[in-house]
Nucleic acid binder design. Structure first.
Lengths: 338, 338
DNA sequence: TTGTAGGCGTTATCAA
DNA sequence: TTGATAACGCCTACAA
């Protein structure tokens, strides 16, 4: 079932059929009567032009690769939708890749994406430096946008994690808290490093000590937040407030505190990060840093589109930093006076 | 940058290069020395074979379309991962499509998928009948698997929603509950209809009345669960237990009950559906029906692969019904004795 | 063991 | 206004 079948059925040449189905068929000179014959044939046969052949010819696939660590992580679905919505309205389709932050998988996916000649790739949350990336992509001028801070010289969209956590911690300090714990994600992650830096900056600016015992490394999953907070009664320095590097760990921590008989926020204040949709539905509702995840996906795709236009005379898009916002709900209170 | 460039760089013909890079290059007769020359050239040039051209030739793209209502719905990420993991280990890539249950979008996506000649399509959660589906796909022998109950004659993977909710309600009845409310999703959804049917069956079997006021229609989102449960004190018949058609609404309901000063489970018992990851981390931990979402994605992709093999002499896969399980946590208690 | 050439389905160029 | 044909990049008979 191809253009030749249609041509035969309509009694015209393939060139004529091509002119009818061409995206810019408007300005093609065709006798209305001929066009109709072709359209009828197409309809009767259920013919759909083969975009593979078109792509091969035009050297453009209208496909983009979207590389994320794990779509199961509640942080990513909104980002993916942001990308996908923007892509589809512009006629692009999205190939989804889950790397689990695994170098092997990442390499394999990039390889596939290059082999299928996607027009561009959006890489989100990859903490690995991946020096090979440039090399892999280089011979094929595949456009790239990264989401989050990377040590790579690509256009990027991100948030100011340092400032965001600094604000959150300053808020706690304003409530009188001095012993503030930090539930970090994997310390190898740039994002986590930035959030930790924001935490330290705020404490330093307030002239507050920040002993290392107050910083604990989790893995971004609920259970790690649970485990860390569950041990709180045994900490040498007992914090009156906890800041988690993401909401999943915050939720885990909240469960642990409840199980330990500690009340939030009366005994311990708690701040999360991301503002996933459930944050406002748990009780107490979680005070957290809202990250415009959907908009980040949107922005990333838009930047990729700009890069595509670059060949048509545009310029390389700048990196964009999107704003975060501290959403104050019910999980923080003034420091308890003993 | 193509096979000809490599051939030139290696001083051989394109056929020789092809034999080296061919997936079944093992049984190709090539002088080791020649092969090495080719490999060196490939390496030096950073060449990657063009899968578009291969696909055009072989009439297989190694791509599948995955159509979901909305990846932002916490139900879908695990399913998507199940599909994607299985696909990638078998050398397939996944094109993600979000329809928002919108017929327009769905049609547009299916059109794109057919035009790009994906080998197969997995359709999850589409409540629309879409009679056009058959027609669109027919001329191109695109294989299809649907997830969930559909009025379509495709192989499907699903769970027994009727039995699952029946079990849950029987559990509540066993705890002494008689007035049990049901927070439904959109009643147009087959899934919701089945869950509602399970609810009714259990009540009928126990000889319990189920007045219509006890069934309220939500939209699967947290807020609708919240709104419905928030009005509980005003219900003409006040239930001692609530069953929600999914966890998102259950979580919303739990928040509402807390805000209304009702204790879970002491005043009202609550059961969810899906067992999303946060269900075990809210307090009280949510008793819910566990749905093997990841495995459903896995199964769907496996069935698609079987369909691919069908051309090679296999048989059309049967539909598969995966088991659910009632996960008892802390959100249900015996009916309070007034 | 290696090379030549036709074709996968489409579009663009050139003629008619 | 329409038609013939050469690409796009690859693979696979068939020849050498």
């Amino acid at each position: 079932m191809n253009i030749r079948d249609v041509a035969a059925a309509a009694g015209v040449s393939v060139a004529t059929v091509s002119r009818v189905i061409s995206p810019k068929s408007a300005d093609q000179p065709i006798r209305p009567q001929t066009r109709q014959r072709v359209l009828d044939a197409i309809d009767k046969l259920g013919y759909r032009p083969n975009d593979l052949a078109r792509a091969l010819l035009h050297q453009r696939t209208s496909a983009v690769g979207l590389v994320v660590p794990d779509i199961s992580n509640p942080y990513y679905p909104a980002l993916v939708r942001g990308v996908e919505d923007t892509a589809s309205t512009r006629g692009y389709r999205v190939v989804l890749c889950n790397t689990d932050r695994n170098v092997q998988k990442t390499t394999a996916y990039l390889d596939t994406l290059v082999k299928t000649r996607v027009d561009g790739i959006i890489i989100a949350g990859g903490s690995t430096t991946m020096p090979m990336l440039r090399d892999v992509l280089q011979p094929y001028r595949t456009k790239v946008v990264v989401v989050g801070r990377h040590r790579l010289e690509f256009p990027s969209v991100r948030v100011d994690n340092v400032a965001a956590v600094r604000d959150a911690v300053e808020y706690l300090i304003g409530l009188g808290h001095r012993r503030i714990g930090f539930i970090a994600g994997p310390l190898s992650s740039n994002t986590v490093q930035d959030r930790l830096e924001g935490y330290r900056q705020a404490l330093r600016a307030a002239g507050v000590e920040s002993p290392d015992e107050l910083v604990r490394e989790g893995d971004f999953q609920e259970q790690s937040g649970y485990d860390i907070a569950r041990s709180l009664p045994d900490w040498p320095v007992r914090p009156t407030a906890l800041v988690a590097a993401n909401d999943r760990m915050a939720v885990g921590a909240m469960a642990a505190l409840a199980d330990a008989g500690l009340r939030v926020p009366d005994d311990v204040s708690l701040v999360g990060f991301d503002d996933v949709s459930l944050a406002s539905y748990i009780r107490p509702a979680l005070t957290t840093v809202s990250v415009p995840t959907y908009e980040m996906g949107q922005a990333a795709m838009e930047m990729l589109l700009e890069e595509f236009d670059e060949d048509a005379g545009g310029s390389l898009p700048d990196s964009r930093v999107l704003p975060t916002r501290l959403v104050v709900r019910d999980s923080c209170a003034e420091v308890p006076r003993p």
